[in-house]
Computed example of a mutant assay.
Amino acid sequence: MGRFGRLPTVLVYCAMDYGYYRDALAGIAKYAGRKWRILITTDFPSANHLKGHHAVGFIGPITSPEREDIVRNAGIPGVNISSHLKTPRTAAVRPNNPVIGEIAADHLIDRGYRHFAVTDTSDKGYENDRVRGFVDRLAAQGYACTVLPRHLSEQGDDPRDPKALAALVKPVGIFMPHDRAAIRMLSKVVDANFNVPGDFAFVGVDNDVAFCTATLPNLTSIDPGSDIVGFKAAQVLDEMLANKRQPRAPILIAPRGVIARESTDLAKLNDPEIAGIVRYIREHACQGLAVKAVSEQFAMSRRTLERRFNQLLGRSVLDEIRRVQIEHARELLTQTDLKIETVSSRCGFEDFRCLIRQFRKHEGVPPGTFRRMRRMK
């Protein structure tokens, strides 16, 4: 027997059609290193398959109670990396789906959108959790959300599509709970000769890079931290193999955040000069940027700068600087354990008191409370 054949075998089911599962596989492999032999299957295994390979454990999406039974009856520990089952009976590691929706809402609000829409996911489980997070976040900020008819996010043209698109108040920010649905509707919008992101802005989920960058305009998407899900799932399996204890509840992984692309890119504005200023603010806001410095950089009087900026974006230059700073602060608070003072410094605030004051103004709660709320969900 070769040296790799002597390693314990962990069977990993990977639905290769989905970027989420491919990225999770990368995280599993990173944890496993050379301590396990990873055996990949692209079809959900049967009980005989699990037993026949003498696997010590299983990791993969378990999407039904029947599949749970297969893993449990095989007599080996399994870790579910799917969000389909609300109360799984196996160990589970999954993205924090309500927070994904919240991040999407924050991104569209920050981009200046005031009308919003989502697809109907009333019977879609984890997709509904993402949409609920989106809608609840909007409501907390005082915004309503339209529920779209399902045919707009389904494959193929529907004679009802043009009328449904025309009926939406524009500009409108659209959230779809996964990239494929977002791309399907985005294509219909482009075919109907609407402007993206001028009339419609789109945010998907999973950051499936091949899909997001192949479509035009490129799709903005939430990175759910799929590789971290995979890494943590492997760690949980390792702990179960060592002590036989299964976690009592699903372990939730905070999303990495927004991967902004053309479908929400305000730099694609009709005014090239203001578009350049928006890009400049994005790049320098967290370095302690002042409005005076922006005015001087673009050789424009402050009065003219403010007038043109407000006409196009509906907010002041300082508002845009603060928006970028707060957006970065939210990411750091969600994804790291950095102290508030460090977050303040990295976001370009004068001191941590200024961060607390501005964060409370934008989010309604201080940074520490925001961090705890995100992690409890």
Score class of each variant (00 low, 15 high):
V365I: 10
L332C: 01
G225P: 06
I259F: 11
F211Q: 07
T304P: 11
R3E: 07
C347K: 03
L39R: 06
R375F: 00
A234Q: 03
L186E: 14
L152H: 07
P250M: 08
A267H: 07
R282S: 04
I274M: 12
A267V: 02
L148Q: 04
R89D: 03
D120L: 00
F359M: 00
P250R: 09
C14A: 01
A210N: 10
D271S: 02
T42H: 14
G257E: 01
V196W: 12
E341D: 06
A24R: 14
S345I: 03
H178Y: 15
I40D: 02
R34I: 01
I38C: 02
R37D: 05
L138M: 07
F194M: 10
P171F: 15
D17Q: 15
D223R: 13
L108C: 07
M373T: 08
V131M: 11
A233F: 05
L85V: 05
N128S: 10
E239V: 04
A299R: 13
C14K: 06
T90W: 05
Q235Y: 12
V343D: 04
L39M: 02
E341R: 08
R150K: 15
D136P: 12
N48G: 09
L148P: 06
R130S: 10
R72D: 02
R303F: 02
Y126S: 14
T304R: 02
A290K: 15
M176C: 15
L338G: 02
M300C: 07
P8W: 15
T121R: 13
V203I: 15
L289R: 08
P197V: 05
V203Y: 14
H178M: 05
N73T: 14
L168T: 03
R282P: 06
P88H: 12
A210Y: 10
D106Y: 12
T90A: 10
G173T: 09
S82K: 12
R248M: 02
A91N: 10
A267W: 03
P197Q: 08
A26V: 00
I62G: 05
S153P: 06
S64T: 07
